[in-house]
Write a protein that binds this DNA or RNA. Structure first.
Length: 479
RNA sequence: GGGGGCAUAGCCAAGCGGUAAGGCAACGGAUUGCAAAUCCGUUAUUCCCCGGUUCAAAUCCGGGUGCCCCCUCCA
């Protein structure tokens, strides 16, 4: 079935057709590493992870790149304003380099905690300055960049008529806004910096225009070209990136390469927390590390951040996270039951010998799940199908090969959302003393000695083991 | 000030012209030594408000109201 995505470029949902059949090349705007990554960042990054998992499930080969912005950038093109990375460095009495490295590590730790499939490349701006310089030189050769006496180099908007196509920010509209600082260096207020000279900066590189540092936008143009080529299929980021960042990337890349840049642009709506915008002032900025310390699971965070469509508002709350934990417990219980009832067989092979009715039912659910995601990633419907599959598997209480067939389906669907990947594998058996207590309790129950039986239940609960009595004997799980 | 988006049950959230998915919570029932899990059922005459188009509107159009995003190197 065709996959359809909303393309910011056309403002429509349209069929997604990769340049090379069976292969997807995509680039995600990653974090600026000057502070702890928060859940808002990860709503955006999770779109990339979902795309990756969905494409691979569909049998497409994926090449995935996410950049790390670790170069400081001035807040505006005038001489005022603070550089966030350098400001953070000053505050922490560390160098900008140390700050960037510190937060880069925190970012990778968060990716790991949330169970991201690692992208194939995580290029950093600081290690790709030569590529950026080369691209700026090309832009100069093409006559679309100009240098001013201060040494700064700007992109010449007048030479790229398509500027504004992505964001809809035409010259007239920007002027109407009247919020553009007049920078006398520039030929047009919309011109943006490619290379900047500012001796106050800690991070400096030698370049044909003098020792300085690159403009913000050029890094993504240079790095995507290096790892994905001059044209590629998908580019994602937060909605705030549409303008000016992505608008400028298109201008640079297409002007330098003389080729169409990206086929499809996807932008993620900003996350709300407690129904309002996240801000340090309100104290509602949740970092992944902070949630981890509070004992929240990566899987629950994944559900909370992926349960609404990426272009719709999504409200994050701690109560929502509780709800997600319950959903996970339900999933996990079912998986354990299916594993037990599948009698330890190999799900992948045994599922094939399940009854015809099971095959039909599971295939039907998988198809509906696929159809939901194929229509611009309708995750709400996908989750509805998944929950229906869970109810169905509970209701049927399948055995043997049928149990394994259901388990196989559920694992597939869970894995698209990146759920239950680690926890299902790492179910460690309780130690001997616990097993002995469980046996003793079984004996007591047979003898209808419920006093002792309940005593053992409490005892084990204190050791973190919860017992579940069922028709076919006792099961346990970590409480 | 200019541009864009969203408003659906107590909460989260699909549907986008044909008569309101799913989840959480709540309540009733089945099962159960206890506990948990699980299953079944009930819960929006109605989709922010006011007009309009249509045989038919939560869905389209106009006007309000509220919130969000961009125009500030914040995902």
């Amino acid at each position: 079935m065709p996959i359809r995505f909303h393309n910011t470029l056309t403002r429509r949902v349209e069929e997604f057709v990769p340049a090379v059949a069976g292969e997807v090349r995509m680039y995600h705007c990653g974090p600026t590493v000057y502070s702890s990554p928060h859940i808002g960042n990860f709503r955006s990054f999770l779109l990339g992870d979902l795309l990756r998992r969905y494409f691979e499930w569909k049998g497409l080969r994926v090449l995935q790149v996410m950049n790390l912005t670790d170069v400081g950038h001035l807040l505006d093109d005038a001489e005022e304003g603070e550089d966030k990375l350098e400001a953070a460095a000053q505050k922490a009495k560390k160098s900008a380099w140390e700050i960037a490295e510190h937060y880069a590590q925190e970012f990778f730790a968060a990716l790991d905690f949330l169970g991201f499939k690692p992208a194939h490349h995580y290029p950093r701006a600081t290690t790709h300055v030569p590529e950026m310089i080369a691209m700026i030189e090309t832009l100069e050769d093409q006559g679309v960049a100009y240098r001013v006496p201060s040494g700064n180099v700007y992109f010449d908007i007048a030479k790229f008529p398509a500027y504004g196509r992505l964001s809809g920010n035409t010259a007239e509209e920007l002027e109407a806004g009247a919020r553009i600082e007049v920078n006398p260096e520039k030929r047009d207020p919309r011109d943006f910096a490619l290379w900047k000279i500012d001796p106050r900066h800690q991070m400096q590189w030698d370049a044909p225009w003098g020792r300085g540092f690159p403009g913000w936008h050029i890094e993504c143009s240079a790095m995507s070209k290096k790892y994905l080529g001059e044209s590629f299929d998908l580019h994602t980021g937060g909605e705030d990136n549409v303008f000016p960042h992505h608008e400028c990337e298109i201008a640079q890349s297409e002007a330098a390469n003389r080729k169409p840049f990206v086929r499809c642009w996807m932008h993620v709506r900003h996350l709300l927390v407690d129904n309002t915008k996240m801000s340090k002032r309100l104290g509602n900025v949740h970092t992944i590390e902070g949630l981890k310390e509070k004992g929240r699971s990566g899987d629950a965070i994944r559900i909370a951040l992926q349960k609404a469509h990426y272009r719709e508002p999504l409200n994050f709350t701690l109560a929502g996270l509780d709800e997600a934990e319950k959903k996970l417990a339900r999933y996990r219980d079912l998986a354990e039951r299916l594993k037990t009832d599948g009698a330890g067989g190999d799900a992948l092979t045994a599922a094939a010998s399940a009854e015809a009715e099971t095959q039909t039912a599971t295939a039907g659910l998988a198809l509906r799940f696929d159809q939901a995601l194929a229509e611009d990633l309708n995750v709400s419907v996908a989750f509805a199908v998944l929950d229906e599959a869970v109810t169905e598997a509970n209701r049927r209480a399948p055995r043997g090969a049928d149990a394994l067939a259901w388990l196989k389906l559920l694992r597939e669907l869970w894995s698209i959302f990146g759920l239950l990947e680690k926890s299902l594998e790492s179910a460690v058996l309780p130690d001997g003393s616990i097993l002995k207590l469980i046996e003793e309790r079984e004996a007591a129950r047979k003898a209808r000695n419920f006093a002792r039986s309940d005593e053992i239940r409490v005892l084990l609960k204190q050791r973190g083991i919860e017992l579940l009595d069922g028709k076919d004997g006792v099961r346990w799980r970590r409480a």
